[in-house]
Amino acid sequence: MSEFARRWLGSVVRAGAGALLPSACVLCGGDADAPVCTACARQFVPGAGARCRCCANPLGGLDAGHVCGACLAEVPAYDATVAGADYASPLDQLVLRLKFGGALALAPWCAGVLARAVLAAPGFAPPEMLCPVPLGPGRLAERGYNQALEIARPLSSLLGIALYPALALRPLDTPAQSSVAPGQRKKNMRHAFLVAPGMLAAVRGRHIGLVDDVMTSGHTLNALAATFKRFGAARVSNIVFARTPPH
C-alpha cells in the first residue's frame, strides 16, 4: 500500500467507521462504500484540466500552466490555487450539505479529492503549513463547526503538512459573500482577518496553504492572503475543494 493510501485510510478511520461501511451515495443514492460512489466520482470529479495556476479558473488546453488575463491585469495577493473540482451540479449540493447541513462525514471525502488534486497539480509547490479559512464568531457559534477546518484536518494527514487551526482570526462577522453584490465583495472583506497573537513568528518567511470549501470571486482568500503577506509570509497558496466557474 502506498504512503498516500495509508494516510487516506487512516483519515477515513479517524473520521468514523461509517465511511467504510456500505451506505448510499449522496449524489445518486446507489450503494457505495464511501460518501460518493466510484461511478459518480469518475463522472463529476474529472481529472485535472487546464486551469490558471494562480486562481484555478479554467483555461483552454493550449494555455495549460499559464496565468489567466484577469490575474495578469490585477495580480492577487495569493500565489497559486489548486481546486479539486468545479462548483457545479451535483457537487454544489454536496458542499451545501457539508456547509449548512452538518454532514461532516463528507469532509474526509472532499479532503481525499483535494489531496489527489494537490499531488497531481503540475509545478505546484506544497505549502509548509495549512490554515483553514476562519469563520466569524457569530457564524461559528450558529453553525457549530467550520467546514474549512473539517476538510483541513484529514487533508493535513493525507499530505503530511502541519495544520494550524487558529493561525488566523476573523474577529468580526462580515456579511456572507453570497449575500453581497459582486462589486462590493472586495470591500466586504477589507480588514476581515488578523494573524493570531503569538503566531507572527510562525508566519514570517513561510509558505502557507489556505484551505476552504469553495472559491467563488476569490476576495475572501485574497484578503486572508494579503493579511499573511503583510505579516511576512513568503508565499500563500489556496487549496479549495470546489472552484466556481466564471459566468
Rank of each mutant, 00 (worst) to 15 (best):
S2L: 06
F4P: 10
A5Y: 03
R6S: 10
W8F: 05
G10A: 06
L20Q: 05
P22M: 10
C25S: 08
V26R: 04
L27D: 05
G29I: 06
G29N: 07
A34G: 00
C37K: 06
T38N: 08
A41C: 11
R42H: 08
R42V: 08
G47L: 03
C52V: 01
R53H: 02
A56P: 09
N57F: 14
P58Y: 00
C68A: 05
A73K: 06
V75G: 07
V75R: 15
Y78N: 10
Y78H: 12
Y78Q: 03
T81N: 07
V82A: 13
V82G: 15
A83H: 02
A83G: 09
G84Y: 02
D86G: 08
D92A: 01
Q93D: 09
V95R: 01
K99Q: 11
A103Y: 10
L104E: 02
L106H: 01
A107I: 11
W109Y: 08
C110G: 05
C110F: 15
G112M: 00
A117E: 06
A120R: 13
F124L: 01
F124R: 02
F124I: 00
P126L: 01
L135F: 03
G136I: 11
G136Y: 07
G136M: 08
G138E: 00
L140T: 11
R143Q: 03
L149E: 14
L163R: 05
A168H: 07
A168P: 13
L169S: 10
L172R: 15
D173Q: 01
P175G: 04
A176L: 06
S179I: 09
P182R: 08
G183Y: 03
K186N: 08
L194D: 13
L194G: 11
A202N: 10
I208E: 12
G209N: 05
L210C: 04
L210T: 10
V214H: 11
V214N: 11
S217W: 00
H219Q: 12
H219D: 13
N222H: 12
L224F: 07
L224V: 06
K229A: 12
K229H: 05
K229T: 13
R230V: 08
F231P: 03
F231D: 12
A233D: 06
N238D: 12
F241I: 14
F241D: 04
T244D: 04
